[in-house]
Design a protein around this nucleic acid. Sequence first.
RNA 1: GGGGAUUUAGCUCAGUUGGCUAGAGCGUACGAUUCACAUUCGUAAGGUCACAGGUUCAAGCCCUGUAAUCCCCACCA
Length: 977
Amino acid sequence: MKYASSYEPGEYESDIYASWEASGIFNPKLTTMPVDNDGDGVDDRQENLASNPKVFSIVMPPPNANGNLHIGHGLTVALEDSLTRYYRLRGASSWYIPGADHAGFETWVVYEKNLEKQGHTRFEFDRDTLYARVWDFVAEQRGNMELQLRALGASCSWDDLTFTLDENVIDRVYTTFEKMWNDGLIYRGEKLVNYCPKHRTAFADIEVEHKDEKGTLWDLEYKLVEEDSESAISKHVRGSDSHFDNGHGRESDTEISGRVRLNRCENDDREPSTLRNGTSETSLIVSTTRPETLFGDVAVAVNPEDVRYKGLIGKHVRLPLTDRTIPIIADEHADPEYGTGAVKITPAHDFDDFEVGERHNLERIQVISEEGKMVNVPEKYYGMTTEECRKQVLKDLKEQGLLKGEHKIVHSVAHCYKCGTILEPMLKEQWFVDVETLAKTAIEHLENDEIKFHPENKKKVLINYLKNLKDWNISRQIPWGIAIPMFRQVGDASDEPDWIFDRRTHLKEIEKAGVRYERDEDTFDTWFSSSHWPIVCTNWTEENFNPYYPLNVMETGADILFAWVARMIMMGLYVTGKVPFKEVYLHGLVLDEHGQKMSKSKGNVINPMDLVTRYGSDAFRLGILRGRSAGMNQAFSENSVIAGRNLCNKLWNISRLVQSIVDEESEDNISKHLRGADSHFNNGHGRESDTEISGRVRLNRCENDDREPSTLRNVTSDSYSTDNMGEDWICREINSCLEQVESCMQNYRFAEAVEILYQTIWDKYADWFLESQKLYKNATLLKTTLTSLLIALHPFAPFVTEAIWQNLSWTEGFIATAKWPARLEYDPISAENFENIRIIVSEVRTTLQALPGANNAKKYNLYYDNDSLVDDNQLLIKTLTRVPAVNSLDGAPRGLRLALANHELYLDVPEKVVKQYKDALTEKILAVGRELDALNLRMSNPNYVERAPEHLVKETKDQIKEKESLISRLKTQLSII
RNA sequence: GGGGAUUUAGCUCAGUUGGCUAGAGCGUACGAUUCACAUUCGUAAGGUCACAGGUUCAAGCCCUGUAAUCCCCACCA
């Protein structure tokens, strides 16, 4: 290869992606049409599926069409694409289906901001106009995100890109909705929903952000209506004088504030004596954080067990600032220990009160409009904002002496997760899905272990969530989304209008049987449509067998386990009767390098595209996978990307070296005879015959290989033989690497797979094997081994491996569709001998470094005595240690004896230097002595010898022998000094 | 209140059913350098595996408890 001495990703990546895409290799070959060659009525692929899985399918969680990819998308692609590429290499028909999300509310917010910038508001346009305008807006933006996915190397099938507003998606959503409607799972209900007055839309519970905030709790006095108050009170006094007074008129603010929450104190301080302070006996005190909603009050609730108020239940109080009287009711909701124990009930503006209202069949009086203005209130307050109204109400109450206390509290407040506006609980007619049976079915399938979770514990979490799931509000009051296909008769303003289902949502008004109907203006919650994602992406239909459904795996963020994964499972089961995926892999958040959540306000956001530009796509992918495990929020720093970049560069240079040796050898072959005659190919342990060597000729085709010949990529038609220990050793190491990577992929342990490849390529292949190959050039083996490693790394670093592949002289086609490497044949004894050489070389290096002075490697020769392994590998040891010479000992031992138990090796170091080494030697002896003691202690334990597995006991015994021998040799050396 | 996690080297993390001297990357220190790569090579230092008990021949891993940190859900008139 005539290439630069460093890998420049920018020069290759976009061309490589373009050629992949043009070749169509990312589009799977299997169709969803039935195949039944044996005519037994069952799809043939279904028959094969269990025994020989040939299909891998995965869908991309659709990124927002309107935006740029963030670091989380980067992680998602790295994970999903490495799986896809891995299974493609394993011979599966891999289908990675890309998507784009209209992201209903998300996009809406972006678009609305845009409108505002131009000085418009959405309320100037009708819904259909807005829809069209947003469509254009999104279409403009969409290409951006798709380019970025390509830059990340996502090997997805672009022809199959699914947009969440595609016709087939809407179709499927309507089909499901119709089915649910007919099954009675859809209902329209007036419920309290979290409503953002700014965006003027309702949210699902899951979209609400709760924050703890400081607020004020006001005590308001509601006067008992005279006629029944007196008798009630007197009766109550007689019945239980000790606790009665508590709920009545407080004399001073001081006292009141002292009492709030006081009752929660340990050891019950509700002793009669402390609570029997003066009472007015003519009113109730309620506590509220929202005085302005009092106009919507329809009752005051007290706890039925609360002895203070027992006698008041059924009586009435006068609602301040109005003419109304409202009843005092008994309900568990009232907590005797909170505030005064009496709570005003406003069903139209509070979630709990709504439920109380349901239980007691109370009226719902809406006093705040959808614009956030006061309505249904006395003239004076009409049209005020809630804040203005609150001030006015407090002022007026104070003037009338009804404001009895004020306390600072901390309570959690619901906010719009986009704009931060405080959400208003709002009474609205909405479409709901009755989730009870859906959730129950989902739980059954989960408990039946039909879906495997990574991390495992998320399954429990999900079941727990499903068990407590409330009905799902699926309507949103924004134009951008899939229209709800429900119509009602024009002019029908009755309480229970007749709704009909119809797919013609492109029309505002339709006619059916001579009756005119108008469309409901709401759109679906995005999760309602995205819960169909596996179904719509794979084109699942009722009619045809689809080998891609269920998906092999659903990979997405742990943060949308509830919002998305849960709903996909419910919907998948409801629509297809099958779980939508066999496994779920959830990734955590990518945090900044200090473990902090990334956010614009903190300024610590890392842009993945920026890293791709600077270090390359592969470097980014390797970097973001490193040190990351399922479900965990983990830090990410540029360092890991740099490490990835370095690996790519290393691999590049490895390939340059290998190619240069291959080139050199092929030139040699022209002038020389067969390599077998070459004397320097010494394997160190004496091969007996040519027969034996040729017997080890690789058999590296998979046994179960049944791919079509045309898809096979023959990496080389040559067979290799291993001619020295290093060659056997690297085959062994590559086999072990492959085995581990395979197991890691099976178990979704991406970081570990990358780590193993990194070490194998760098530490083993480059630092040991290639160094030894500078002496023993085995071109055929070099080709085979490099090919194996390139393919194994390809799922994680697709670009550099492809760039190299395209430039090697012996490869053809794309590495992206190469065949996963088979195990290599090797001689295990020979491989193990190389391990011995490594130990010797390391010991020489360590000792040389520890000796006083610099540049020791060049100074001292190495001598060996009576050691055939070293004798056979003098040249290799000399090269790896860089000592000037490795010789057989001529005469008596001299210099420094190396701390090796099984080899007698000396560094020819002058006596003076050896003496300086004395301390280090002494320390070494002590260290080995400590290890020996530990081993002896273990053996002296009869229980260990008796109960531990035999091989461990034997191992310990061997080690003791070895250490003893080492110590005695070192001691001899020391004594000579 | 309910649920789920985390705690191992200076930093970020591995460590599968308990089994050899607990690993990696980055960082640090020292040394090297024509001969694929300074995005390099070699060597080293650095650990009471949060703490306290327990089970076991053997515990980072299993059990009990404690502490710290984090996340989710519910509630907060």
